[in-house]
Amino acid sequence: MTAPARSNRNVLRRVVGFLGEYPLIVAGLLLFFVFAAIQPHFITGSNVVNILIQASVLLIAGTGATFIVMTGGIDLSVGALMFLGAAILSSTLFGVLPPLVALLLVPIVTMIFGSLNGLAVAYAGVPAMIVTLASLQVFRGIGGHVTEQRSFIIPDGLRVAGEGNWLGIPAPIVIAAIVVILGAYVLRRTRLGRFVQAVGSSRSAAANAGLPVGWVLVAVYAIGGLLAGVAMVVQLGRLGAVQPTLDSGFELTVITAVVLGGTSLDGGRGGVIGTALGALILTIVENGLVLTGASPYIFDIVRGVVLLAALLTSGAPRRLLSWIKRDREEVLDTPLNGPSLH
């Protein structure tokens, strides 16, 4: 191979490598252009703000779920936990508290409930799917009991996280951005994040290396619970009302965003940024469908097709990458005289 050919190939490898890590960027851009071509309003600044606001709840809850899925777990109770948070916030018990205190307490309460999931998964040895399926019922039941299955209007004082504007940016966007950035940072750059990846990659390897596996599992479900509470505070702020069926089925949307973002359900591989892209794509689809005036009857079809297409195209850069890398085999296995690390 000649020298320029190799350097061209390296540039290609780097670009494709980046897209290989975040393949959804391609799918997202494609989708964006399609909608923009159909409906010019789609690309206005205010609609982009709209999309970000609408994605905020999913971004926050999805960040928490990413931690859980990264350990090879799953949380089916996230929607129920959010409803529970809303129920608690609307209860008379909380009515006497100053709004800010009440808002800060909700995530703490949901974090405690979330860590109960973690305790069961880590120490009772029950599969996460079963634990959270059971807690889904319990959480929704408690929430229903607290609200007596009635709807509630949320007083304006409790709606800052949904309606506020901080430095000219809508509060949901600010909160979601902070959560996503912080989540990505914790997962990539901290000891806890490293342990999460290690436990998800191989639980027995992590145990053999003396990592506190049980503690890590409790921690991720606690994070999931905390962020479910934060997501709820934002959602309630936006909605201004609680209804008994609030967020039922939301767990599937959350898991869809996580998986679409490239996090493996087996754990170990993936990340928060991928989930964020997944959440944005799901929101863009919903937003685009309404904006382009599509018939409600075809919404589900389009949703499904877009999901499938996103997943299919997301595999393409990886395949391209492995095609570029296919010459590596011979080089890898030269144990003695191979290139050593610098």
Partner: peptide, 17 residues
């Protein structure tokens, strides 16, 4: 019959029109 879908859908419709 979902509050969130109603909110986002209405916001999107107001945006488009």
């Amino acid at each position: 019959w979902d509050l969130t879908k109603a909110l986002d859908g209405t916001a999107n419709a107001l945006q488009a029109n």
